[in-house]
């Protein structure tokens, strides 16, 4: 779990994924036959050159949702914008880190006894929120922070038994699982792509697919677990700890039917718990890739509660089971006629 801890703790909001990439190169670069970083920041590692096809591409994205410094006001407070989908409700009173020196700041909110009843009923709009680093003037803040600096949630990885708590399981969990998969010898030529800027519109994945031009793409993700408290008469799937989550469709793509069947059948055969993704929302790099090239795409994820917030929960067994499922299914690809 040390690598997963490093990956989750590392800063990597969209467009600023360098630290995550460096960790990955150091951790598993030696398992690859070639390592390449493109101008956007996508990290490519290849294995199995010369093996007979199909050419398999695994993808996970290195970026996380976060914030960016928009401007610094006269009092030294930092106005920011979001990078990726963040609900403004989760931001007030959170610790954050800013820029290359990881300056500590707090997203401030008026204390209870200074706010009236009506104020407390409403969500503070993003435009009214500021990061406070404790400076008293613009010039003082500017000594540490610049416009355009990335801001990320100051959350450190913790483990309690099988329960893991961290920021950015979406998609450092996928990054970690790919780092484990690259150690495996597949029967097919494989390219492992740790992509960038997925949270900003699937940007890196599109470029990567155009470069690699694979036959099959398997996206490894951290997706939302929905087993949250509710009175609704709806089974709250996917559940934490109930196995890999397989996508049928989302807002960007219908997963290849044969690959979905392969994943489900492999899980059943090997006794790996699994579940379908629900609700059928969101999008992944698969959606971008199929718009570049006709390829068979599948998405397998771990369920994580509270993704796209400062802290999420994941289950160790889901990670292990997802790695095992993808490994086993990939071995059976020749049985599938896409």
């Amino acid at each position: 779990m040390e690598l997963l801890k490093q990956l989750c703790d590392a800063p990597g909001v969209s467009g600023h994924e360098d630290a995550v990439r460096e960790i990955l190169i150091k951790a598993v670069g030696s398992y690859a036959e070639s390592v390449h970083v493109d101008s956007l920041g996508n990290l490519f590692m290849t294995k199995g050159k010369g093996k007979k096809g199909p050419h398999l591409m695994f993808t996970a994205h290195t970026d996380e949702v976060g914030l960016m410094v928009e401007r610094i006001d006269d009092e030294g407070f930092i106005k920011f914008m979001t990078l990726g989908g963040i609900d403004p409700r989760v931001l007030p009173a959170k610790r954050v880190r800013i820029g290359k020196d990881a300056i500590c700041g707090v997203i401030g909110i008026k204390p209870f006894h200074l706010s009236d009843k009506e104020e407390r009923k409403e969500v503070t709009p993003l435009s009214d929120l500021r990061v406070d680093i404790g400076a008293s003037s613009r010039s003082e803040t500017e000594r540490f922070v610049d416009v355009g600096d990335p801001i990320w949630f100051d959350t450190l990885f913790e483990q309690q038994g099988d329960i893991l708590k961290a920021k950015a399981f979406d998609d450092r969990a996928g990054c970690y699982m790919m780092a484990e998969l690259i150690k495996h010898e597949f029967r097919f030529p494989a390219t492992f792509v740790w992509s960038v800027q997925e949270e900003m519109g699937l940007r890196g994945g599109r470029i990567a697919a155009a470069r690699v031009r694979p036959d099959i793409m398997i996206v490894l993700e951290g997706t939302g677990a929905c087993d949250l408290p509710t009175d609704a008469d709806v089974a709250r799937r996917p559940f934490l700890g109930k196995g890999p989550v397989i996508t049928i469709l989302d807002r960007t793509v219908v997963a290849n039917q044969r690959l979905v069947e392969l994943l489900c059948q492999t899980a059943e055969r090997d006794g790996i718990p699994w579940q379908f993704k629900r609700p059928l929302v969101g999008g992944t790099d698969a959606g971008a890739a199929v718009r570049v090239k006709a390829l068979g795409a599948a998405v397998v994820a771990i369920p994580a509660r509270y993704i796209h917030t400062p802290v999420a929960l994941a289950h160790l067994k889901d990670i292990i089971n997802t790695i095992e499922l993808v490994k086993a299914a990939a071995e059976r690809l020749r049985e599938v006629k896409l």
Binding site: G287, R291, K293
Partner: peptide, 11 residues
């Protein structure tokens, strides 16, 4: 579904 297959069909 956002013209999924269109660009690949023409490539």
């Amino acid at each position: 579904l956002k013209f999924t297959g269109l660009t690949a069909a023409l490539e």
